[in-house]
Structures are given as C-alpha cells and as structure tokens.
C-alpha cells in the first residue's frame, strides 16, 4: 500500500514544500483576508444594527463564519491549478502520461498539495489574529470563536476533511476543462463566481431569499463553506449535521467519477492529436 501511494505522496509533498517557500505570498494572502474579513464584518454589523431581528444567524456566528471563510479561502476551488495549464501549454502533459501512474490521482495529489500549502500558513495566521489577538485587545465581539462544543468540534473535523476533498474534486474537473479548452482564464472566470455564490462564501446561504433554500442546501458547492461552517457553530447539529456530511461525501464521489471520466476522454483526444 505504501509503495503504491508513494508517487502520489511525493507529488503532494513536492508541491507543498515548493509553495511554502513563497513567504511573501503567504503574508500577502493573510493581509488580504484580514481586510476582506474586516469589510464584510463591518457591512454585516451595519445591517444588523439596522434590523437584527431579520437575520437567520446571530451576529457573533456571522462574524465567526466570516473569519472561518477568510482563513480557508485558499481552500476554495475558484481557480484551476495554474500548473496544469502550464503543463498543457508546454507539452509537459506528455511526461505525465509516460509515468506509470494513474494520471487522475497524480494530479489530484498535486492539486491537493497546492491548495493546502496555499491555505495552511494563512489559516494559522488568521487563527492567531482573529481567534487570539482580537479577544486579547478587547475586541472579542468581533473575534473568531471556538467551536460550539465537543460534538461540533468533532463533526467539524470530518466536515473540514470532506470540504478539502470536495474542493480538489471540483478543481480537478476545472483542470480537465482547462486542459481540454486550453483556456484557463475563461474557466476561472466562470468557476469563480459560481463557487463564491453557491458555496456560501459571498453571504451564508440562508441570507438568500427563503424560497431558494431547498436548492441552495442541496447543491454540491454548499459543502465547501456553508455546511462545514454551520456545523462549526452548531447551526447544523445532530441529524442535520450528519446529513450535511453525507451531502459533502456524496457530491465528492460524484465529482471524482465525473472528473475521471472527463479526464479519460480528454487524454484520449490529446493522444489522437499527438499533443
């Protein structure tokens, strides 16, 4: 088993270490996310000040939701892996086909390494800033709070893992479309707004008009933000939380199957074109 996984682990590791070197990029990402978080929270606060009773989630929870979202923003599948586009353009894909590996899994491992390496330093910094520094300086009203309880914490760990798996599965589909269309910008331009709205990154999904809820809660991207974060502060608990996890897992599987299928077809086409 270990021998089988080795190349994929290596692919993950190489990518992960490479990206960790971009110290400035990590700090920059952190700064960006602090700023966005602050703006969003100020906007929410202004609305809540006007009519708090209308809100589906309490202000402290929306604040935590916002910081969580900022901390894990880089885990969202909103741009296809730039390395894939590069590989296609330079013909490096050919090399990948020469390796005695399952290409889907290989790319999956690389992309996983990429997004985790991008997200990890920022998430840690964000946790320190919003979870520790803010309460220390007397701004606990605006801080990132700990999970609602032990049950929420355990469920969140599972939901978080699924969220990453799901994110990479979405990215893999995007990667394949990039590879097939040779156009990363177009793919990203379509992917980004979809992910931002339907994951709940823009606003928690329950802020949208009530009539849209059944659809919003069932679609795959809800598993990227809305479900795990609401599990975190126990807005989803018990059976509802388990349903959320099942939804994440189910969609992850569906997307992986779809991605594999699309990739096989795309590779066959590449082979036929000799490219």
């Amino acid at each position: 088993m270990k021998a089988v996984l080795r190349p994929y682990v290596a692919a993950f590791r190489a990518r992960f270490l490479l990206l960790l070197q971009y110290r400035v990029a990590a700090l920059a990402g952190f700064a960006t996310q602090c700023w966005w978080g602050a703006i969003k929270i100020m906007v929410y606060a202004a609305f809540y000040e006007t009519a708090a009773a209308a809100a589906p989630i309490s202000l402290p929870n929306v604040v935590t939701y916002t910081w969580l979202g900022q901390a894990f923003l880089a885990l969202l599948p909103w741009v296809a892996d730039p390395e894939v586009a590069m590989l296609i353009r330079t013909g490096g894909v050919g090399y990948d086909r020469l390796r005695p590996l399952d290409t889907y899994s290989y790319w999956y491992a690389r992309t996983l390494g990429w997004i985790i390496a991008r997200a990890l330093p920022r998430a840690i910094l964000m946790l320190i800033a919003a979870g520790i520094v803010l309460p220390l300086v007397g701004l606990e009203a605006w801080a990132w709070r700990p999970p609602a309880g032990p049950e929420a914490a355990v469920l969140f760990v599972a939901a978080f893992a699924l969220m990453i798996m799901l994110a990479v599965a979405v990215l893999m589909l995007a990667n394949v479309v990039v590879a097939a269309s040779l156009n990363e910008r177009g793919v990203n331009a379509v992917l980004m707004p979809l992910v931002i709205v339907f994951s709940g990154s823009l606003v928690p999904l329950d802020f949208f008009p009530d009539t849209m809820r059944p659809f919003l809660h069932a679609q795959p991207l809800a598993g990227l933000v809305d479900i795990p974060f609401r599990i975190y502060f126990a807005n989803l608990r018990g059976v509802a939380a388990l349903e959320g996890l099942a939804l994440q897992a189910g969609w992850t599987l569906v997307l992986i199957v779809l991605g594999r299928f699309a990739m096989t077809r795309m590779m066959r086409r590449l082979e036929m074109q000799g490219g």
Partner: peptide
C-alpha cells in the same frame, strides 16, 4: 453575482443606516 449578494442583504434587512 456581487450585486446579488448586496441584494440578498437588502432583501433581508430592508435598508442600511
């Protein structure tokens, strides 16, 4: 989609300050 987010907030809260 951004304006959709703004609209969602106004839809729920009515107005802001």
């Amino acid at each position: 989609i951004e304006i959709l987010g703004v609209f969602a907030l106004f839809h729920r809260f009515g107005q802001v300050k």
